[in-house]
Design a protein around this nucleic acid. Structure first.
Length: 843
RNA sequence: GCGAAGGUGGCGGAAUGGCAGACGCACUAGCUUGAGGUGCUAGCGGGGCGACCCGUGGGGGUUCAAGUCCCCCCCUUCGCACCA
């Protein structure tokens, strides 16, 4: 009878450990193998000359207080499978893990409880680590990094200094959402109707001194060098975010002023259709050119604008507002005088903060012109000769020129692209314009008024009489004279604080650590920067530190870099598609420019795992009460079941709901594998019949190809099919089960190791050679092919792979079901694709 | 509005242009079991007693043959949203 039956039913009286011997008990064997791997240092990454390398990277987690959720192991299992597979294929593998441990929650917890963020972080890390280890991931834990660790912070600060020295880190006054009540700067999303999302406290837009990183200097390369990366749709998102846009800057002189306003446009072909121009409310020219008569109206408008958040200002649904300055500008292409307006639909931070308005060919200008009764002058017509109703809407597509009043002397009927070229050439010659590429990407605000982050390694001279640390001392920090902390003094550590609250001062909590902040040198007082770095800083380069994490001399050795970089596979959530992945690429390129790294791009292949939803199809969250805790799954069914289930749920990239019954199904599958192993050891014969051998080879082929393509769901399915087939054998040969165990090993490493050991192998299978398949055995000599009559499936025939058409048709016509549809009719056409289909067309 | 990915049984999902629904879950029946929320066997898209007919969001088209390719439309999810 069934092997499974024997194993459950028949007690082996001579074993005193019957359960352990005969039953699949993940709770026993999973910890056993985890201990063995650790003891044998199975996953410590080392390089052997001549062997290929593989760097499989997970996005390291923020160790939150709530521990791991089932979303984490999804991506982690995927990379672990590939890494284990690569080891079996003879690669040296680097598969590290660490902690993105700076961040707000630990600081908030500190404010509420007084617990030092370091303590909170340490205990959260301990929990995460225990949970990750219980899942049997093949991480090289000797390379663990923690972004809050002083040895790590040292190099984060070191990179900052490199950026500072190259002018890529600088200070700037930028308007931010400052909430005095909360004592911090808020992100735009955190501000609703001018009040803080949490607590409803008033928020003001106020210019604050901030550290900025000049990511815009890399805009072109960040855009261009996406080409060639094996990344998903993320490339498009980054391109959009960078927002490269080709156009021209055009100068409009202001009548009666010795000033010009420069606009950026992508449509220089429409300059002759300009009927007014608009400045952003923040534009410096506004005050200078506004006429007396309009001054009050303009000032009032600017005041209203200031109180609006970015989100309100950019709400597309609202009608566009603006007010005339009373001034006039001269259109350089035809000398027309057009009115100058102020309108908040013009963004101060994009282009030049000023636009030329062509209502005939731009929807926004059209809407504005309709509101204020401004002119609409068409200068582009459709190429198909059809008329366009310019009163109703703008015509924004390219077309061909109408008769233009243009000094550039562009003719009629010229294609828009050509008009652009000629216009820019003329403007250029006249010194009134130039071709220009603009990017939407803005420089990166890099400072936070927080405690739990990397201190920025900069200090400033202080003007003061006496000791600035004393209560009530008067002093002035010379922010205009930033000085880099010497590399030899890194890491610059955080001071101990009793109170982590931000306080009223935009300088942040570190400003209260006066003994830390101020120091004296040669009689001169200095003050340290009291802003800290944002959480992104540590994650910008952690993948580099993994190659040489304990190096105290350098950020990493060149040998270590050469051994492992670049990252071959990077898996993580798509929520990091733009920010983290763009920031990291930026740092990498900056490091590339100073010769620290040798590749222009760090991550060769990128994959985003899809979110796992709760059983009700909603996002998992405590408030929805649909959270699945991986610890519970490990306890009830084991880590292997969890791993295999998460891979079996569907394509890695897909969003998919959790089904507890599904885990049970996978558990049954592993039970069957176990039973096969037990049956194989009892089997008297080790002969594998041809049919079984074919099945084994087909499965090897399928699983191998599916792992290479990251199609883990269908790989699991293939193994299930093989198990079913092996189960049906009267006697299960070990020679057929062993390849299955090897195929299963990357997915369910614990059960695989246990069976492997029981099969008598002394060495762990972590480096056992991956099974190979014989292509000839993967193809059946006889294949069932569908037989259609007039395109409708009527029957199935077993034919030789290369059966001749004549023979195939002859056999088909003998088939009763086919006959029923062909009798008495003439065959007018035969479509025969050997091994695939036979289609008889009859009349 | 723009961009991307999708729409296949009761559910998760499979299908180089070639028998739609692999594999798993749930469900049904039978066997096993002292019992079972176990194990095994069989069935399981819809309609029809049946031969058959209809079925991959909707509508057209290409083809001997379409879930798959082309055109139009609808819907869902996720990004981005006045970027001149």
């Amino acid at each position: 009878m069934r092997a499974s039956k024997a194993c459950y039913a028949a007690p082996m009286s001579e074993t005193n450990d019957r359960a352990g011997e005969e039953r699949y008990e993940p709770a026993i064997l999973e910890p056993k193998w985890q201990a063995i791997w650790e003891e044998r240092r199975s996953f410590v990454a080392t390089r052997t000359p001549g062997k290929p390398k593989f760097y499989g990277l997970d996005m390291f987690p923020y160790p939150s207080g709530s521990g791991l959720h089932v979303g984490h192991p999804e991506g982690y299992t995927a990379t672990d499978i590939v890494c284990r597979y690569k080891r079996m294929r003879g690669c040296d593998v680097l598969h590290p893990m660490g902690w993105d441990a700076f961040g707000l929650p630990a600081e908030q917890h500190a404010i509420q409880t007084g617990t030092h963020p370091r303590d909170t972080t340490a205990s959260n890390i301990a929990t995460f680590k225990r949970q990750l280890k219980s899942l049997g991931f093949s991480y090289d834990w000797t390379r663990e990094v923690d972004t809050t660790d002083a040895d790590y912070v040292r190099w984060t600060q070191w990179i900052f200094l490199k950026l500072f020295q190259r002018g890529l880190a600088f200070q700037s006054e930028v308007p931010v959402n400052w909430c005095p009540e909360l004592g911090t700067v808020l992100a735009n999303e955190e501000v609703i109707d001018g009040k803080s999302e949490r607590g409803q406290h008033p928020v003001v837009r106020l210019p604050l001194r901030q550290w900025m990183l000049r990511i815009t200097a890399y805009a072109d390369r960040l855009d261009a060098e996406l080409e060639g990366l094996d990344w998903p749709e993320t490339k498009g998102k980054q391109r959009h975010w960078i927002g490269r846009s080709e156009g021209a800057e055009i100068d409009f002189s202001i009548e009666g002023h010795d000033a010009t306003m420069t606009v950026f446009t992508t449509r220089p072909d429409t300059v002759s259709g300009v009927t007014y121009v608009v400045l952003a409310p923040e534009h410096p020219l506004v005050a200078a050119i506004t006429t007396e008569g309009q001054r009050d109206a303009v000032n009032a408008y600017i005041e209203v604008t200031k109180s609006k958040s970015d989100i309100e200002r950019t709400d597309l649904g609202k009608t566009k507002t603006g007010v005339a300055t009373g001034a006039f500008a001269v259109n350089p292409i035809n000398g027309d005088k057009v009115s100058v307006w102020v309108g908040d639909y013009v963004l101060a931070h994009y282009g030049t903060g000023a636009v030329m308005a062509v209502p005939a060919h731009d929807e926004r200008d059209h809407a504005f012109a309709k509101t204020y009764g401004l002119g609409i002058v068409p200068v582009v017509r459709r190429t198909d000769g059809k008329a366009h109703d310019f009163d109703a809407s703008a015509f924004t597509d390219d077309g061909e020129s109408t008769v233009l009043r243009s000094h550039a002397n562009v003719g009629e009927g010229v294609a828009s692209a050509e008009v652009r070229k000629q216009t820019v050439a003329w403007l250029n010659g006249a010194g009134k314009g130039r071709a220009k590429v603009t990017y939407r990407l803005r420089d990166w605000v890099f400072s936070r008024q927080r405690y739990w982050g990397e201190p920025i390694p900069i200090y400033f001279p202080v003007d003061c009489d006496g000791d600035p640390r004393l209560d009530g001392a008067e002093f002035k920090v010379r922010f205009d004279k930033p000085i880099a902390v010497p590399e030899s003094e890194l890491p610059l550590r955080l001071p101990e604080l009793e109170d982590y609250r931000p306080g009223q001062d935009p300088a942040g909590p570190l400003a209260r650590a006066r003994d830390w902040r101020f120091f004296q040198q040669d009689g001169q007082w200095f003050a340290r920067e009291t802003n800290t770095m944002p959480q992104w800083a540590g994650s910008c380069w952690y993948y580099l530190r993994y190659v040489d994490p304990r190096n105290v001399e350098e950020i990493f050795s060149q040998d270590a870099y050469d051994a492992w970089m670049p990252v071959d596979l990077y898996v993580g959530g798509s929520e990091h598609a733009v920010l983290h992945l763009l920031y990291a690429r930026f740092w990498h390129k900056a490091l590339f420019d100073i010769g620290v790294v040798k590749h222009a791009e760090p991550f060769v292949k990128l994959v985003h795992q899809g979110m796992i939803l709760g059983e009700n199809g909603e996002k998992m969250s405590k408030s929805r009460g649909n959270v699945i805790n991986p610890d519970d799954v490990v306890k009830s069914h084991g880590a292997d079941s969890l791993r295999v289930y998460e891979m079996f749920m569907g394509p890695l990239e897909a969003v998919k709901p959790w089904q507890t019954n599904g885990v049970e199904g996978v558990r049954r599958f592993l039970d069957r594998v176990w039973n096969l192993g037990v049956a194989a050891r009892k089997s008297t014969s080790n002969d594998v019949d041809t049919e079984t051998l074919r099945a084994v080879h087909k499965t090897i082929k399928k699983v191998t190809e599916d792992i290479d393509g990251l199609r883990f769901n269908t790989a699991v399915s293939a193994m299930m099919i093989l198990v079913k087939q092996l189960q049906a054998l009267p006697s299960v040969p070990q020679a057929a089960v062993e390849p299955l165990v090897l195929l299963l090993a990357p997915f369910a490493p614990h059960i695989a190791e246990e069976l492997w050991e029981r099969f008598g192998h002394a060495d762990s299978l972590t480096c056992a050679p991956w099974p190979t398949f014989d292509a000839a055995l993967c193809e059946d000599a006889e294949i069932e092919i569908g037989v259609q009559v007039n395109g409708k499936a009527r029957s199935v025939l077993k034919l030789a792979k290369d059966e001749s058409q004549a023979s195939a048709v002859e056999k088909a016509l003998e088939d009763a079901k086919v006959k029923a549809h062909t009798d008495g009719k003439a065959i007018v056409k035969i479509v025969y694709v050997p091994g695939r289909i036979l289609n008889l067309i009859v009349k």
